[in-house]
Every structure is written in C-alpha cells, then in structure tokens.
C-alpha cells in the first residue's frame, strides 16, 4: 500500500523534476567553496557552461556547492583528488591564503595549486552613512581616530582583514562590530547607525547606488569616503594613492580558478586554455558588467604569479592578520 503511494508520489515528483532539469552526464566537477546564492556561487554557475563551450566535445562541467570551514573544506577536498583535472575550484584570494599565512592547519597551499585563470577581481571603497553626516572627508576620520566603530563580518574574513590592514596603515585602532553575515548586512548596519563606516567592494557599492529598484533606496544613504586605488577616483573622493599609501592598492579580492596540484601538463594546459577563454568570453564580461562584478581575466601563468604576489604581500601583515583572528 505505502509503496504504491510512494511510487505515486515519486512519479508525480519525477514528472515535475524531469520537466525542469535536463539529464546530464558528469565529467568535470566545478566546486564552489560557499553556499548557494553568494558571489562565488553565481560566478561559478555562470562560468560552467562557458567552460563547457570552450572545452568542446562531450564534457560537462557540473557546479557543486561544498561550503564549510570558510572555504577550507572545498580547497582541502580539491587537493586530495587524483590530479586529473576533473575538479576545479574558484579560490577566494586572499581568504583562502589566510590559513597558509598565519600557519593554521590546511591540506592545501595556495602557492602549489595548479592555477588555471583568474575570473574577476574587486577593490575596496570606504563608505559611511550620509544621514549620520559625522564624516565628510577621510581627514575627519583620521582626526576622530580611536572612537570609530566599524560593522563587519567575523574576524578573519576578507573584509575584516582588509579593513584591519588599512586602519593599521593610518594608525587608527577602530572598534569592530562583528557578527554580520554578509557585506550587505553590515552596509545596512552603517545605514541604521550601528557603526560609523565600513568597507565595500566597489562593484557592490556601484550596484547599490545606481540601482533603479525602489527597493534599494535605503542603500542610497551610503556615501563614499576613501577609494583604494593608485589611479584617479571613480567616485570623486580621496584615494589611498593620493594620500601617499601606494602599498595599500593591493587590498581587494581575486577570484582565481585552480585545480589539483600535480595535474599532467597536457591535461592542465587544455583545461587552462578553455577556462581562460571562458573568463575572456564577451558574454561573461557583459554579465559581469550587468551584475557589478569586475571581470578581470588572467591566463594560467599570470594567475600563478598573482597568487605568489598576493601571498608575499599579505605575509608582510602576518602580525595584523594573526591578531585579528585570535582576538
């Protein structure tokens, strides 16, 4: 009796499911170190079919979420696979490098990953609430100094580290208000007046303020204070470069795709080629522009060099980083 019911339910479910999902064979697993819905998830899901397209043949690229340990779980999983190029992962740099830098246990080392390409990067911007109006310029911030409160994600996250390094460079000892789950949550925190200022990726900020959606109105209260760049400011505010802190321009994030170390050169080159073509695909660039992600393709060799450069740069701040995690 019950089996009949179950079979019936199954049939109904299958009819529905089958109409929604096409059947696929599994060839390459494209790991996502975080849960569905986030930035890494969307980038990976956007890239998977493009990589398929440029690989040609009958290879399917199947995205798979493997959240855990702030991205460590997926990276550990990747390096423990057979080196056959069947598993890819978008690394979050410098986030994924952090355990290697501060000597936390991890199976992987970002310096030995077989890098394939870089998909996107982002740079930061310091924002405050226009409503509160406490700070008009960055100078106001530096004179206010130690009473500054910064809503932020947990200690050890990329945003926290960048803020810690930046504030350290200006001799400011801010008070972090931690525990926000995402950057849009802490941005909302600044708008509500939970804290004074915070750091946002330029892409997200642009998306918030230019959004035509009435719904995003609240975010229009955000106003930029300081841009992290050595070039001219896109937002008409002071930049770290113009204030003589050129070394800070590195602060940001890179989304770099890698595979299991020790992958045979022929296999690796073939995949690296397809992945690079995918990240350079005009369709990907157009999508990035639309959703506010700075698509920034790099090939395998450039990506490897970039990974080593980032590692060396953040290693200089080992003490700041270690302190922020231990706090």
């Amino acid at each position: 009796m019950l089996s009949r019911v179950i079979t019936g339910t199954a049939a109904a479910a299958l009819a529905v499911g089958a109409s929604i999902l096409p059947a696929q064979a599994k060839n390459i697993t494209f790991l996502i170190a975080y849960g569905p819905g986030g930035g890494f998830d969307t980038v990976t899901r956007k890239l998977a079919p493009l990589i398929e397209k440029h690989l040609g043949g009958n290879v399917n690229v199947v995205p798979k979420n493997m959240p855990g340990g702030r991205g460590k779980k997926a990276a550990n999983y990747l390096v423990n696979r057979k080196p056959n190029g069947r598993n890819l992962l978008i690394f979050n740099m410098p986030g994924h490098a952090m355990p290697n830098i501060i000597g936390e246990k991890a199976d992987y080392d970002v310096r030995t990953i077989d890098w394939l390409a870089r998909a996107a990067e982002f740079k930061y911007l310091i924002v405050t609430s226009a409503r509160a109006g406490k700070f008009k310029t960055w100078n106001d911030v530096t004179s206010y100094k130690d009473k500054i409160k910064i809503p932020m994600t947990a200690p050890g996250t990329t945003g926290y580290l960048a803020t810690a390094i930046l504030m350290d460079a200006y001799g400011i000892k801010p008070k972090f208000i931690t525990g926000y789950k995402s950057s849009s949550k802490y941005a909302l925190g600044v708008i509500r007046g939970d804290g004074d200022l915070t750091i946002l990726a330029k892409g997200s900020f642009r998306k918030y303020i230019t959004s035509k959606k009435k719904n995003r109105q609240a975010f229009k209260d955000l106003t930029p204070l300081l841009e992290i760049t050595n070039g001219p400011s896109q937002f008409g505010v002071e930049t770290t470069g113009s204030l003589g802190k050129k070394e800070l321009a590195v602060l940001g994030g890179d989304r770099m795709i890698g595979t299991t170390p020790g992958t045979p050169k022929a296999v690796k080159d073939k995949i690296a080629n397809a992945v690079f073509k995918a990240v350079s695909d005009p369709e990907f660039a157009a999508w990035g522009k639309k959703v506010g992600r700075d698509v920034a393709p790099l090939n395998a060799a450039q990506t490897k060099a970039k990974a080593l450069e980032l590692f060396a740069y953040y290693s200089k701040f080992k003490s700041v980083l270690a302190a922020s995690v231990k706090k």
């Binding site: 959240p67 855990g68 340990g69 702030r70 779980k73 994600t153 947990a154 200690p155 050890g156 996250t157 931690t178 525990g179 926000y180 789950k181 995690v325 706090k327």
Partner: peptide
C-alpha cells in the same frame, strides 16, 4: 560551531564536521 562575533570555533571537539 563558528561564532560570527569572535570568529572562534566553539564546542566542535575537534570534529571538522561540527566547525560550521
């Protein structure tokens, strides 16, 4: 699991599964 305020992993008893 991980406590977002302090970034500390609590009561996981060293089991990776419980870290989150």
């Amino acid at each position: 699991g991980l406590y977002d305020i302090t970034g500390t992993v609590r009561y996981s008893m060293g089991i990776p599964l419980l870290e989150d």
